[in-house]
């Protein structure tokens, strides 16, 4: 019940956030220099063709009217035509988005799982050579941009060692599984096609890890810091004084508390991961949203720009709602504090 109220409230807020975001993006896309109608029709198109296109796209109307038309269509799930692909934007997104989602989910899972594990190991062996190497490596992980990792991996594992495929989602010759979720790995598992599954997984490894490393390093460092800090707290001394076994103290009392900051920044890290995905997708020729998004920006493909950004907005909000749920489950102070404020 409490959960439902929380969700309802967060979804309510989200509507306003998305409305605000749509207005902002809508305006920015339109005030950028360049005439979208002219760019869509090409430099040699006669003036009357451009004019007709402008009227069709409502580009001759005031901005608020244009926004009204856009919102009216968007509420019905129609995001208009892309002038780059000449197709429905929703159709384009349906095609490119799953690839990005698969990459982001894979990277997100690696980031969360290995970040926490590394942090715990590092804290467990604090100030040993293990801890020191983890700290040095994660420090480099935090300061190195994802695309640098992507290029390094590409050179090392792709060309020099020739261990992993360097482009796309599946090797040529491997038949793609029937599309159900759009995530190739999941689809091939659902179809029971393990050849395709492992092939898709191999394609995911390099871009996925390149994307994950930054956030992973940050998670590891924060987890380590939070565990070592909490170890000094009085209640750990009290629990130890009560003959509670060390393993129970560590895995139950210490871990739950120490994961709160880690989980809190997971949401932010996931957002920056989506941003970084643009460059990493370019490097690995990943057929995701990035190429589409970048083309949309460069060609002033108004409908595509707004739709791409809105999709990222929705993902960002969803991830943060999930993060907030997990954090409030971990931390009763937040849960109860929110209740008291009502």
């Amino acid at each position: 019940m409490r959960l439902l109220i929380f969700l309802a409230r967060r979804l309510g807020y989200s509507i306003f956030v998305l409305l605000g975001l749509s207005i902002l993006v809508f305006l920015i896309a339109r005030v950028m220099p360049g005439d979208p109608a002219r760019m869509a029709m090409g430099p040699r198109a006669p003036e009357w063709v451009v004019e007709r296109f402008r009227t069709e796209m409502h580009l001759d109307k005031p901005l608020y009217v244009q926004y009204y038309y856009w919102l009216r269509d968007a509420l019905q799930g129609k995001f208009g035509l892309s002038i780059y692909t000449r197709r429905d934007v929703s159709q384009d997104i349906g095609e490119f988005f799953p690839a990005t989602m698969e990459l982001a989910l894979f990277a997100g899972i690696i980031m969360g799982v290995f970040g926490i594990v590394l942090g715990v190991v590092s804290a467990r062996y604090a100030n040993s050579w293990i801890d020191n190497s983890v700290r040095v490596i994660t420090y480099m992980g935090v300061v190195t941009p994802a695309y640098v990792f992507a290029i390094l991996f590409l050179l090392l594992f792709g060309y020099v060692l020739n261990l992993l495929p360097t482009t796309g989602r599946l090797s040529p010759g491997v038949p793609a599984p029937p599309t159900r979720t759009g995530l190739v790995t999941l689809d091939s598992l659902l179809a029971g096609n393990f050849t395709a599954f492992f092939d898709a997984l191999k394609h995911l490894i390099m871009p996925g890890i390149a994307l994950a490393l930054g956030g992973l390093s940050q998670e590891a460092r924060i987890t380590r810091a939070s565990i070592t800090e909490n170890l000094q707290r009085d209640f750990i001394a009290l629990e130890r004084s009560q003959a509670i076994p060390e393993r129970v103290i560590m895995s139950k009392y210490l871990l739950k508390l120490s994961l709160i900051p880690t989980v809190s920044i997971l949401g932010l890290d996931f957002a920056s991961l989506l941003g970084n995905a643009f460059l990493v997708e370019m490097i690995f020729n990943w057929p995701g949203m990035s190429r589409y998004g970048i083309h949309a920006m460069l060609t002033k493909d108004l409908n595509a720009i707004v739709a791409v950004i809105m999709i990222f907005g929705v993902i960002f909000i969803t991830v943060n709602i999930i993060v907030d749920l997990v954090v409030s489950w971990l931390d009763p102070r937040i849960r109860l504090g929110a209740e008291r404020a009502k």
């Binding site: 209640f235 001394a237 009290l238 004084s241 739950k256 508390l257 931390d331 009763p332």
Partner: peptide
């Protein structure tokens, strides 16, 4: 031996009942 700590707020784990 049992011990009672000086600050009960610090001596109780905040995320467990």
């Amino acid at each position: 031996i049992s011990m009672i700590f000086q600050d009960p707020t610090a001596a109780l784990n905040p995320v467990f009942t």
